[in-house]
Amino acid sequence: MTFPAPNGPTGVSGVVPPVCTPLTPQGEVDVPSLLRLVDHLVEAGVHGLFVLGSTSEAAYLTDRQRRQVVQEVTGHVAGQLPVLAGAIDMTTPRVLDHVAAVTAAGADAVVVTAPFYARTHPAEIARHFRLVARRSTVPVIAYDIPVAVHSKLPAGLVLELARDGVLAGLKDSSGDLGGFREVVTGARGLTGGAGFSVLTGSEVVVDAALALGADGAVPGLANVDPHGYVRLYRLCRAGDWAGARAEQERLCALFGMVGVGDPARMGGGSSAIGAFKAALHLRGIITSPTTAAPQTPLSPPETEQVGKYLAAAGLL
């Protein structure tokens, strides 16, 4: 895949894992582990990498650490496949600073949410994306994640911005399959947005999203089992829907690991990220399962449960 022109179509498709950020017990980026993880993903045949998203714990990283992650990953893959980088922050001026930093560090595209903290009108969200695209030297992909930013990107707004060449794609983590379908269907009829990429952020309905016409998936669980998601993508593209369903159901069972954390003492995010990192640690890919403060780490019994999920999936 290539990113041929600023703010133009990315043509991004396939499996694009949102890369976990391995940390040392002191909370610094563990670069050797990060590069081993990247190699694990590339060797599995993924089609791109997304750094500095939710699964990357981008909200917990300092600006220095964000730049470090992008520089290390882009330098390591050396153009083998595209690297998308989150430029996620509360307001347009802060997002523009991140856009400048991650593109200087080598990102091939930026992934941007709606503004958050203050309640934002759809017209202001549209202005936000237009201002970002005007300043960005690489394509801009919208990130629809209302659980984090408290705003749902309306399908009509996404398609309008795609038609105007403002957005090159959408990563949809809204959980709204009907709205996702509306974007996929509408993207087919775009006159000025040829190549607009629509990607699902779900782990559990990738087969359904691809059947609807999605271009690819950005599943956090692909850190743990990238081979499974690449296999699922290939089965779908080959039209083997029975095989795809079986592989998706295996991955759904594996995804159960995100619930191992005790909800009486940690949030769902701590449990999910903790499970992914514990799985990567158990598989020997990263050195430490450390998650960023103030997230609560998994207990030894919870980590043991992660191991059982891996074993059941044939990964341990």
Rank of each mutant, 00 (worst) to 15 (best):
M1S: 14
F255V: 02
A114M: 07
E247T: 09
A133S: 12
I125A: 07
G189D: 13
A162R: 11
T2Y: 09
T91F: 14
G179M: 01
A238T: 07
L81S: 10
A313Y: 00
D172E: 10
G261Q: 08
C236Q: 05
A278L: 00
S136W: 08
A59Y: 15
P22L: 15
A107D: 01
T62Q: 05
E57A: 14
V102P: 00
V73C: 00
H47R: 11
D262C: 09
S33I: 03
T290Q: 14
D97T: 15
A105C: 05
A275I: 13
R283G: 09
T21F: 13
V149K: 04
A246E: 06
F255M: 12
Q295D: 02
V51S: 01
D89W: 07
F276Q: 09
G179I: 03
P139E: 08
A312E: 14
A142L: 10
R265Y: 01
H150T: 09
T24V: 10
P4G: 13
P115G: 01
T92N: 03
I88A: 06
V70G: 00
A85V: 10
G213W: 09
G307V: 08
V205P: 00
P93V: 12
N7W: 02
L280D: 03
P263K: 02
E43N: 15
T2K: 15
P219V: 08
A142M: 03
I125Q: 05
D89Q: 06
T290I: 09
P32C: 14
M266G: 05
T91W: 12
D262M: 04
A109N: 01
P154T: 10
W241I: 08
A279G: 03
A101G: 03
T113E: 10
A194N: 05
S299H: 10
Q305H: 09
A264I: 13
S33G: 08
G86H: 07
S288Q: 04
G14P: 10
H281W: 14
V38E: 11
S270N: 07
V306A: 02
D164F: 09
Y117G: 01
R94Q: 12
A105D: 11
V12G: 03
A264P: 04
V69F: 02
L315V: 08
V95K: 01
T2Q: 11
A105R: 12
A253I: 10
Q71F: 05
T62E: 02
F196M: 14
A253H: 13
T91S: 14
V46L: 11
A312H: 12
V31A: 11
T91Y: 11
A100E: 14
T296D: 00
G195D: 12
L81V: 02
A155S: 15
A133T: 01
A311I: 06
A59H: 13
T296N: 03
L310A: 13
K171I: 02
A162D: 01
T137H: 07
V158E: 04
D108V: 09
A214P: 07
A272N: 11
R67H: 13
H281T: 06
D39P: 06
T120L: 12
A209P: 00
L161V: 14
V306M: 09
Q68P: 00
R237G: 01
P4E: 08
G193Y: 00
A293S: 05
L157V: 02
P25G: 08
R237A: 07
T55I: 10
T62I: 08
D262L: 13
V69R: 08
E28C: 15
L280K: 11
Y309E: 07
L315D: 00
V140I: 01
D240N: 09
A246D: 06
H47S: 07
L37I: 15
L232H: 03
T21W: 12
